[in-house]
């Protein structure tokens, strides 16, 4: 058979993982062509044809030429060049090489010039400007969210060391730390009306910060610590709010969170109101009311347990120390 004529399709029964050389050799033998015929047709030496069939690529030139030879050879045998090239790539991968040569074909052995300082200075200026802009934005944001604490009511008999509520309007002010008797706390939990509404009631001051927490910029973390210390007082205080808030909050969902490890959290309700943002300590519990679904963002999700309306809420816990956002519904 003349090598000049295109051959009939000799698609070999290519088993997956078969080497390109073996595929080419079997197709050549099926076409009854000798190595010399192929070498003459491709204008290559017989040594090169043998090297291709034996997958001895180190005897050939660079990767570009090897791919080119394989493509031309497979076209001569009427094989699909992509099948052969895929097999070649597989061979490269098995040899621990990537699909493409890693080294750039262009190498220049001229020492790199010293970098001018101009660019460096511009980047420093841009970086400083960025830091300044970020700090201005951060401080501005902080002043917006941290409002001065309201004027304290002197009534402090019930909660002498009550929570130092920072007056944040979105906070329900009803979380309690009740490690001793969590079930009781849940059952006795009051309406947890927002501070704004409870402040109108005659006993509003009971749920308000004590005079002792007179610092007008009292951060929220202080509030939670104080809450932890005076959980029982707050319980009593909250129970006094029940007559006003009970009717309004009958339809609200109740969520209870307890912590076995230190964990930051942020809770938002279905309206998007932030109910709580705090760093919780091991052993602390937190009760919140609002409209489900709640979005709970947990800094250390492995250390948190959630109950919704008395039912435990299960979620896939990531490893300790990992953040997770959970929708509780």
């Amino acid at each position: 058979m003349s090598a000049d004529e295109p051959l009939e399709n000799n698609e070999p029964a290519s088993a997956p993982g078969e080497r390109p050389g073996a595929l080419l050799k079997s197709a050549r033998e099926q076409a009854k062509l000798s190595e010399e015929d192929v070498a003459r047709e491709l204008r290559m030496t017989v040594t090169k044809v043998r090297a291709l069939e034996a997958d001895e690529y180190e005897k050939l030139h660079s990767d570009t030429f090897i791919r080119g030879y394989l493509r031309t050879y497979s076209k001569l045998l009427n094989l699909d060049p992509n099948t052969i090239l895929d097999a070649y790539k597989q061979t490269r991968r098995e040899a621990g090489l990537g699909d493409e040569p890693e080294e750039s074909p262009l190498q220049i052995n001229v020492p790199a010039p010293a970098r001018s300082m101009g660019k460096f200075i511009i980047w420093i200026i841009v970086l400083l400007a960025g830091i300044w802009a970020l700090s201005v934005w951060f401080l501005g944001n902080r002043q917006d969210t941290v409002e001065p604490a309201p004027v304290m009511d002197p009534v402090s008999d019930v909660a002498p060391n009550g929570p130092a509520n920072d007056g944040e309007p979105t906070q329900t002010g009803a979380f309690q730390d009740t490690p001793a008797d969590p079930v009781a706390t849940q059952s006795e939990s009051p309406g947890n009306a927002p501070v704004g509404s409870s402040a109108e009631g005659p006993d509003a001051a009971l749920a308000q910060p004590t005079p002792g927490a007179g610092d007008t910029q009292a951060p929220q973390t202080q509030a939670s610590v104080a809450a932890a210390e005076s959980g029982n007082s707050l319980e009593e205080a909250a129970s006094l709010n029940e007559p006003e808030a009970g009717t309004e909050n009958d339809n609200l969902d109740q969520m209870r969170l307890s912590f076995t490890e230190e964990c930051w959290l942020e809770v938002t309700d279905s309206r998007g109101d932030v109910l709580e943002t705090d760093l919780m300590q091991p052993g602390q519990t937190l009760e919140l009311q609002g409209e489900a679904p709640f979005t709970v963002k947990l800094g250390n999700a492995a250390g948190a347990n959630i109950q919704l309306n008395g039912e435990p809420f299960e979620f896939d816990r990531p490893p300790s120390g990992r953040y997770m956002a959970v929708t509780v519904n």
Binding site: R43, T64, T72
Partner: peptide, 13 residues
């Protein structure tokens, strides 16, 4: 080109 020059010609990828 291969036939005319007697050299191997390959098409780049």
């Amino acid at each position: 080109l291969s036939n005319e020059t007697g050299l191997p010609f390959i098409v780049a990828e």
